[in-house]
């Protein structure tokens, strides 16, 4: 394996405005080094002006989502050696406004998520505050939505979705998936309300099952499946 790789990093300075540009860095590679380690090496030794967002370095926080060689991954979750490339192109995520370099503004994702009622809806508020008994779920009821709770809101699926990038009003895979997580929950009582919310031109119908969202998800969540199931519920009224 090569002793060093070339990082082509997207740089964008908001004070300059206009389009971003690519700058190249030569990074020595050690065994087990991730893309994030490479970027941190650049920041420490080569170019301190590089901006990245990261936190946990172990694919839990979902901060370091970016596009590496044309596909969305978490930088901390991808080793340089597994790419098998001499040149590694690192770009910020698509479909989000870029704040600086590799840092994107993900407010739109959270805004859409909030608009889709991504919380448990209970009709009886008194009972909700002072429960009189336990609300037990069976294993099957848990499995119905458990997978979708693994989402870390990194925004990779939103960036990979071809429909979001061509039709920005589309709700996006992550918010719809999150909505399905609560829709499928046996404790949730928002069924009809939720279906009416997604049964719009901008809603589930703009998904064409391109599967890019499930392809890039670092946590094995399957947003494409969730959207199809939400659509099935919507089709059945």
């Amino acid at each position: 394996m090569a002793a060093s790789v070339k990082f082509r990093v997207y740089r964008y300075r908001p004070e300059d405005g206009g389009k971003g540009f690519y700058r190249e860095y030569e990074v020595p590679v050690k065994k087990g080094m991730t893309i994030l380690d490479g970027l941190l090496y650049i920041k420490e030794s080569l170019d301190p002006t590089l901006s990245i967002r990261y936190s946990c370095r172990m694919a839990i926080c979902g901060s370091c989502g970016m596009r590496v060689n044309g596909i969305e991954t978490l930088a901390c979750h991808t080793q340089i050696s597994e790419l098998r490339r001499r040149v590694i192109t690192v770009e910020p995520m698509k479909n989000f406004p870029v704040i600086k370099d590799l840092v994107t503004d993900m407010a739109v994702l959270f805004k859409k998520q909030r608009a889709l009622l991504t919380w448990l809806i209970r009709r009886d508020l008194v009972e909700q505050e002072n429960p009189t008994h336990q609300y037990i779920q069976s294993d099957e009821e848990l499995e119905r939505y458990l997978q979708f709770t693994y989402c870390i809101q990194c925004g990779l699926c939103y960036s990979a979705c071809p429909v979001v990038s061509t039709f920005p009003d589309f709700y996006g895979p992550q918010p719809l998936m999150k909505m399905y997580r609560y829709f499928a929950d046996s404790r949730d009582e928002g069924g009809k309300e939720r279906i009416d919310l997604v049964d719009k031109f901008e809603g589930v119908w703009r998904c064409h099952f391109a599967g890019s969202c499930s392809m890039v998800c670092p946590k094995g969540v399957d947003p494409a499946l969730a959207i199809q199931l939400l659509r099935r519920a919507s089709l059945r009224g």
């Binding site: 049964d199 719009k200 809603g203 119908w205 089709l235 009224g237």
Partner: peptide, 9 residues
């Protein structure tokens, strides 16, 4: 027409 019915169509 509702989007649902349009897609069914």
């Amino acid at each position: 027409m509702r989007e649902r019915n349009l897609m069914l169509l």
